[in-house]
């Protein structure tokens, strides 16, 4: 069984079973593959280098739209214009955090530096946002229903399995954030 992240002298320490590490690796990899921009043949390399993407569009996938939201509520044109200048680097920074978190899963001891912890927090958050879209969590009541699902022996279909995975990543992120808050308080 996984242990909650704790803040201590060496940093933020956690413990995960091999199967739990494997699960997280695959979740991180799934979100990375969602975020990786499609390769384009005739792309201007200089534009790519500075993070411009003239072909950026509001994603049609709900989960991706939640990860890469419009910057203005009621102005799609302005949001699209903004997206062309910023979305590529946003995708890259999210991918960077997910990859860094995945990499630290290869270490025997799960001891996180402050930078590791920040990567883990955003990586887990992005994983949860994607799972929540797949589970159709639209409001607090939906979230409460999913939280009721805690017993792995009851996982009999994809949805109940996803709910269990969602609850596991929620618990893990909550323990990590508590540890990060303690480290914030300790450094004051």
């Amino acid at each position: 069984m996984a242990k909650a992240f704790k803040y201590g002298l060496k940093g933020i320490k956690g413990y995960l079973e091999p199967a739990e590490r494997e699960l997280l690796r695959s979740l991180f990899a799934d979100v990375i593959s969602m975020l990786e921009p499609a390769e384009r043949a005739n792309e201007d390399p200089l534009a790519a280098l500075v993070g411009l993407d003239a072909d950026a569009r509001e994603p049609s996938d709900r989960a991706l739209r939640r990860l890469l939201p419009n910057v203005m509520k009621n102005d799609d044109d302005a949001s699209l214009e903004f997206r062309r200048y910023t979305e590529r680097s946003l995708r890259e920074s999210k991918i960077g955090a997910l990859k860094a978190a995945a990499l630290s899963l290869d270490r025997e001891d799960l001891v996180l530096t402050p930078a590791d912890a920040r990567h883990w927090a955003t990586a887990l958050n992005d994983v949860r946002l994607v799972l929540a879209e797949r589970l159709d969590i639209r409001d607090d009541a939906d979230a409460d229903n999913v939280h009721l699902m805690q017993d792995w022996s009851q996982a009999e279909d994809v949805e109940s399995y996803l709910a269990l995975v969602y609850n596991f990543t929620t618990w893990l992120q909550e323990s990590l954030v508590q540890a990060m808050v303690h480290s914030l308080d300790a450094r004051r």
Binding site: R66, A121, N125, R128, L129, A132, I137, R138, D139, D140, D142, A143, T170, Q173, E174, V177, Q178, M180, V181, L184
Partner: peptide, 15 residues
């Protein structure tokens, strides 16, 4: 939104 943890949102505002 119903997903983000209250502790996390508060942490982000602080940090």
């Amino acid at each position: 939104d119903p997903v983000n943890l209250m502790s996390y949102v508060s942490y982000v505002f602080r940090s």
